[in-house]
Write a protein that binds this DNA or RNA. Structure first.
Length: 913
DNA sequence: CCGCGGACTTGTAGGTACAAGT
DNA sequence: ACTTGTACCTACAAGTCCGCGG
């Protein structure tokens, strides 16, 4: 078997970097008419779509003003932040409402009422809070709510099943029932079962019980600790496999899953790499291969020991002693002028944490060594610039430009239809850099006299030309490109062929910073081989430099890092651009898994942590108090840590860098947050907090000016040092992962019920949406959203009209009247009343479904579900849920996610986060 | 201790291929 | 067959956090 590992997939053909096709599933919404207006009212994402105008930002940061929304409606704050959209509030709540109430713990441990929330998963807590949010009802909102009540199935349409669902679908099967072997008592059980209904929840007979139920999962787990925790914590793979026992039966199809994981990476055959390469590695088609082929086909020439391949999960790959570890440091000669940030904070000394010093090496990484052998082909450069010769106008006259000058002019011209084109910062930066290329004596001196239209039009023509190409031509081009890039797409890590994430060197262009980035518009110069440092295995052939006559800046052999190459970011010399392996690689998978394991551990410490910060709300030590409050916010609101930023970056904040004007106290105990977070996305939320927190915030704000730091004694280093004292390896971002995953796990267990596939998928989506809202993952509303909604509404109206006509006909029929003529003037056919009824009910079903779609669409128009799926939700929760409920995994994960999460595919169906 | 270099994760926009609808 | 809508992926910006060295 060794050779043929059943597990491995083989790849047959497809491959490549392939274009993945999307899985069929989709939730689509179909258009129907509704009024957009309502929707508009809703909270929108705050961030303006794309470029949002400068406006928004500007205000934001500077001082006082708060970020604003760009949207006109802005006047109303967008509700979006945690708060759900209004719509969500209601709706979900209906369904969830129960939960909330239940959730609260009966007895509050701590003092204030608010405290109760703490134990709940954020998602649940949030709801409670939501109400508070201001954005209540927006027109659309109301409508939306209704959704929740409807059958889920209606909401989602599934489109078809995947074509060959039969074959390819990886059905995670397992019998649903399997739930818990007796082991862990409650923990394993679905929440639902554990949670009594609301009544029960609220008061369990004895205290202990209650507490359990009401507490967040975390809480419950903790108590269980015994086995649950043990198993959990222990290292991953083993545990899992062990646990699987219970479900052996279920596993039927399981093998697919399990195999898949390994399969993804296929060992390489050294032999023919090229040809085989293409075929083999096809990580992507897991699904197909998974079920269909299991045979070891193979490619397996694999010289690689299976063990290696399989090892993905293992924490330690035993590796030979680290051989050459060339240590780090890309040479950095740059000196940047960093501006000093003035911080007004006094630094405080922290207490030393017991843990902080220890564990330097991340668990699972063998002593910092990331790989033993590494072979790859380096990077591919963008093609040289091809001058088009189209002359722009200066002061009305055509101007001759050298290719270099023309290239930059073209970069700018092409952005005419973006918001950047109208931002002064962008224009100024562009013009400054361009003038350097034009030279001092060039006629072009003033931006105002430049007319890039001819170039822009040329660009439009080119675009059109491209669009007009026949599909054959396009295909040919694609293949050509593929052929050129193929060798760069793969790396061989410890004998396993892995996909490389970004092997293309970034092409020159104008920097597109987000928000009000001070450097937007600056020229991002072309990167040369002499800018690039290659990292490769010691004995491996050094990638040949693709540009004749040039050479790499440096070649190193550092196996303590995972990058294959890097270069300094031309925009800010202090930053680097790295070439890493793709997400589907074992290396990435391993660290991803470690991330989730760490988050799961937080579950066992969260109680203590919450108790600690609650206690510290009263601390006399100001630093301690600030840490407590900051930790509370990070835990409760899933805020990011908030590192300090340089002046040459957009002014965005996170928890530790919140400014006084980012938080408003709303008596009696609510806080309104309004700030621009990562990517200049607005976080706007009003939450009820514990009274002590409220008081503390008032105190921290006292006597400070708007732009000053709210937490003047804090920074992320200090905060994280403190967190490490509470749990080894704990940092601020772990709370986000924890809260996202625990919320998903909780909602799925609580809300999934028997039903159709579509209904189950809808439950998942709702849970996913909750998480996205918690994490404030927004997206801009598509330009066509309104028109789409209008169409949807029109369609619904049409259906309703049809239904009404049928109803009328039916009643006439029953009364023995003539049905009259149809539109074409022909007499209507007389059908049996049953036939009418059937038709009517079909139409009604259709209407309901469309209404659902409409709500979902409106509901999700500003919510991005993908980010949490990719980065915050432990895939094992999803996989286990799919197995328990017989939902094909590809209904939830697309090909790349399946590949990325191959390590999670063989999870036990009873897995709990 | 602190600042900074360094490495890696997270996040949204945008292009595109493809599916669904007409 | 054509249009429209969307899901998927890629590009690359923007965070987090660690550890080192002065």
């Amino acid at each position: 078997m060794a050779v043929v590992d059943p597990v491995m997939f083989d790849n047959d053909d497809e491959e490549g970097p392939i274009s993945f096709k999307r899985s069929s599933t989709s939730v689509k919404n179909r258009p129907t008419p509704t009024k957009p207006e309502g929707s508009s009212a809703n909270a929108g994402p705050i961030r303006s779509p794309k470029a949002v105008a400068s406006n928004q930002q500007k205000n934001g940061l500077t001082g006082v003003s708060r970020p604003l929304q760009q949207r006109p409606q802005s006047s109303s704050p967008n509700p979006r932040p945690l708060g759900l959209n209004s719509s969500k509030e209601h709706s979900s709540h209906n369904s969830n409402s129960v939960d909330k109430s239940k959730l609260k713990r009966p007895f509050v441990e701590d003092k204030s009422d608010d405290s109760e929330d703490d134990h709940k998963p954020i998602g649940l807590r949030r709801k409670v809070e939501d109400r508070n949010l201001k954005k209540p009802a927006v027109g659309s909102g109301t409508a939306d709510n209704s959704d929740d009540d409807k059958p889920l199935s209606l909401k989602i349409n599934s489109t078809k099943t995947p074509s060959s669902s039969a074959n390819k679908a990886i059905v995670l099967k397992t019998t649903p029932k399997i739930e818990q072997p007796g082991d862990d008592s409650e923990d394993d059980k679905p929440l639902a079962s554990r949670l009594p209904t609301s009544a029960a929840l609220k008061r369990g007979g004895n205290v202990s019980d209650d507490s359990e139920d009401d507490k967040p999962l975390a809480a419950r787990f903790s108590k269980v600790t015994g086995n649950a925790s043990a198993s959990i914590s222990s290292s991953k793979d083993k545990v899992l496999s062990a646990s699987i026992k219970a479900s052996s039966s279920s596993k039927v199809s399981n093998n697919d899953m399990s195999t898949s994981r390994n399969s993804i990476k296929r060992p390489i055959d050294n032999n023919n790499q090229t040809s085989s390469a293409l075929k083999k590695a096809r990580p992507s088609d897991v699904s197909a291969s998974a079920s269909v082929k299991r045979e070891p086909k193979a490619d397996d020439n694999d010289n690689v020991p299976l063990s290696q391949r399989l090892k993905m999960g293992e924490s330690s790959k035993s590796k030979p002693p680290a051989k050459n570890i060339v240590k780090k440091s890309p040479s950095s000669l740059k000196k940047d002028n960093k501006k000093m940030k003035m911080k007004m904070k006094t630094k405080k000394t922290m207490k030393n944490s017991q843990f902080s010093k220890t564990m330097k090496v991340p668990p699972g990484s063998g002593g910092g060594q990331k790989w033993t052998t590494l072979v790859h082909s380096g990077v591919i450069f963008p093609p040289p610039y091809k001058p088009h010769g189209v002359k722009m106008l200066y002061n009305g006259q055509p101007v001759d430009l050298t290719p270099e000058q023309e290239e930059v002019a073209t970069m700018f011209a092409v952005m005419k239809d973006t918001d950047y084109a109208s931002k002064q910062t962008f224009i100024d930066n562009f013009f400054t850099d361009w003038r350097k290329i034009l030279g001092k004596n060039h006629i072009i001196k003033k931006f105002e006299l430049c007319d890039f239209t001819p170039i822009y039009e040329w660009h439009l023509r080119e675009k059109e030309k491209k669009k007009q190409m026949t599909s054959e031509e396009k295909k040919a081009l694609k293949e050509e490109k593929l052929k050129q890039e193929e060798k760069y797409m793969w790396a061989i890590v410890d004998g396993v062929k892995e996909k490389v994430g970004n092997f293309r060197v970034e092409p020159p262009g104008l920097f597109r910073g987000r928000g009000e980035h001070p450097k937007m518009g600056k020229l991002k110069r072309r990167i040369q081989p002499s800018d690039i440092t290659i990292n490769i295995g010691k004995g491996a052939p050094i990638p040949e430099c693709p540009i004749p006559g040039e050479s790499w800046k440096e070649v190193k052999h550092d196996n303590t890092v995972t990058w294959l190459a890097f270069w300094n970011d031309p925009i800010s010399q202090k930053d680097f651009k790295y070439v890493f392996l793709a997400a589907s690689s074992a290396l990435k998978g391993q660290s991803d898994k470690e991330k989730y394991e760490k988050s799961r551990k937080l579950k066992h410490h969260i109680h203590k942590i919450r108790d600690t910060y609650t206690k510290d709300f009263r601390s006399k030590d100001k630093t301690k108090k600030q840490i407590a409050v900051a930790t509370y916010l990070i835990d409760k609101l899933a805020l990011r840590a908030g590192n300090e930023k340089d002046d040459d970056e957009a002014e965005t904040v996170g928890c530790c860098t919140l400014k006084v004007d980012n938080v408003t106290c709303v008596p009696p105990n609510k806080l309104q947050f309004d700030f621009l977070g990562k990517d200049s996305i607005r976080y706007f939320n009003t939450v009820e907090v514990e009274l002590l927190v409220y008081k503390a915030i008032e105190e921290f704000r006292a006597g400070k000016k708007p732009g000053e730091d709210l937490f003047d004694k804090l920074d992320t280093t200090r905060l994280n040092a403190h967190l490490k004292d509470l749990m080894p390896g704990l940092t601020a971002k772990v709370f986000r992962t924890y809260n996202a995953s625990i919320t998903l796990d909780d909602i799925l267990h609580k809300e999934t019920e028997d039903g159709t596939l579509l209904e189950k998928i809808a439950v998942y989506q709702r849970a996913n949406k909750e998480v996205a809202i918690i994490c404030n993952h927004q997206r801009s509303v598509s330009k066509s959203h309104d028109s789409q909604m209008t169409r949807l509404n029109e369609k619904i109206d049409e259906l309703k009209a049809q239904r009404d006509e049928l109803k009328a006909d039916l009643s006439k029929l029953r009364k023995g009247k003539n049905l009259g003529n149809d539109k074409d003037g022909k007499p209507k056919r007389n059908l049996a009343p049953e036939a009418f009824e059937k038709k009517i009910s079909q139409i009604e079903t259709k209407i309901e479904k469309m209404e659902m779609d409409k709500k979902i669409k409106e509901d999700l128009k500003t919510v991005a579900l993908g980010t949490s799926k990719i980065n915050y939700l432990d895939p094992r929760i999803t996989v286990a849920w799919c197995k328990r409920h017989e939902v094909p995994i590809e209904k939830i994960f697309n090909k790349s996610l399946i590949a990325k999460f191959s390590w999670a595919m063989d999870v036990d169906p009873d897995f709990r986060f």
